[in-house]
Simulated scan of single mutants.
Amino acid sequence: MAKAQETVLEINLGALTHNFNYLKSKLQPNTKFLAVVKAFAYGSDAICIAKHLQNLHVDYLAVAYTKEGIALRDAGITLPILVLHPQPINFKKIIEGCLEPSLYSPKILTEFISVAEQEVQNNYPVHIKFNTGLNRLGFWENDIDYIVTKLKNTNSIIAKSLFSHLAASEDKNEERFTKNQINTFKTLVTEFKSKINYSPWTHLCNTSGVINYPEAHLDMVRCGIGLYGFGNSTKENSNLKPIANLKSVISQIHKLEPNETVGYNRAYTAKHFEKTATIPIGHADGIGRQFGNGKGYVIINNKKATIIGNICMDMIMVNITDIECNEGDEVIVFDNSHKANELAIAVNTISYEILTSISQRVKRSILS
């Protein structure tokens, strides 16, 4: 693997294949696999990732917003694509792009039926979302009669699936809550199916649900973070491979005398004779201000170099007083050995935020 000569996000498709196969191995043969590729495939490259998953014969893709789904269609992705948070202004575009919306409220259901009828659709596939405890989006149990009536009174749409979202499937301390969610969902599915003359698919599990609650795999599972290399526990992280390596390079080395300051607002003061390295990556690239002032770090020649001072828009400065290095040397922000979830702990966030914050201006390099 070539050493970085500029800031670059390497995307390892071999690691993606490994993660897909590992998660798939947890499922029964007939359980379908939906891959979540929202937010530029968790900060990587949605088109590249979606094409690779399509080659791996994943069953479904999911995005958050219509624009993301349209971009995949424009790139030649033919898999069914679930739009998790559609807005009525985009309903016509959803139909034009053969995307499948999540319908989660009476208003959204009514408005999509209206657009589908205007577009002369017949049995257009939609996905009905129920709220079982996350309290973010979704119909309630007592909406079932309303939904069924609306579905029976139109030929324009058909419920392809019923689904919900687990709130704390990674947390063993919340096992009772999660099992209550699972039971609530199974109960409302039974009621829904008893009142309509066909049988929609059901899906509930995210990555942690796949790992921790096999009884809830149902007809399909939805995996996001696991595909990108994180399983929300130390044990499962060891079974997965992060697909992204964020690297950069030392632009310049400075020697500081005691009491000299570094960066904006003179936020760091040298305590003695010190050396710093300036690296071309900053908050415009996804390294937020919370990384600065001794909280975040990078790896240079296998040693941890603490970020000092305030994060700049395009640069960070790190302390290399005890590290042998030169201008032009490679810098690792995170990779398969120095993982994003470990960096996340240092700056009091989660791996999801570290990954999805990487700016689109950072060069992407695809590794097979």
Rank of each mutant, 00 (worst) to 15 (best):
K235E: 15
T132V: 15
C325M: 02
T190M: 08
L72G: 02
R289Y: 06
I300D: 02
I345F: 07
N122A: 11
I128Y: 02
K172H: 13
N326I: 09
H85E: 12
F185G: 03
F273Y: 12
P86F: 07
I77K: 09
A216F: 04
S194Y: 01
E257V: 04
N212G: 08
L256D: 00
F177L: 15
N265Q: 15
L56E: 07
T278V: 14
K363V: 13
A284G: 09
P29N: 08
V221W: 02
L204D: 07
I332W: 03
T269H: 00
Q54W: 05
Y22C: 10
Y146P: 12
A270N: 01
R176K: 15
D329A: 11
R176N: 12
N265V: 05
D143V: 01
S102P: 00
N265M: 14
L72S: 04
K92S: 13
L13S: 07
I281T: 06
T187I: 07
E215F: 09
C223V: 15
V362W: 01
A2G: 06
E6F: 08
T149A: 12
C312Y: 00
I147K: 01
S359C: 11
S114K: 14
E330T: 10
K304H: 01
V331S: 00
V63W: 03
L27V: 10
K339T: 15
A41S: 15
L256N: 04
L16W: 00
P106T: 10
T234D: 14
I300F: 07
N90C: 10
S233H: 08
H217M: 09
L103Q: 01
D59G: 09
Y213A: 05
T178S: 10
N302G: 07
A35S: 10
L53P: 05
D171L: 12
N341T: 07
E236D: 15
I287R: 00
K235A: 13
Y146S: 14
I366V: 13
S233D: 03
T31L: 06
N206E: 10
R222E: 05
S351G: 06
K107A: 14
K271F: 06
F139Y: 02
F192M: 03
G288W: 05
Y213E: 00
K339A: 09
L99N: 04
A270W: 00
T178Q: 13
S365N: 08
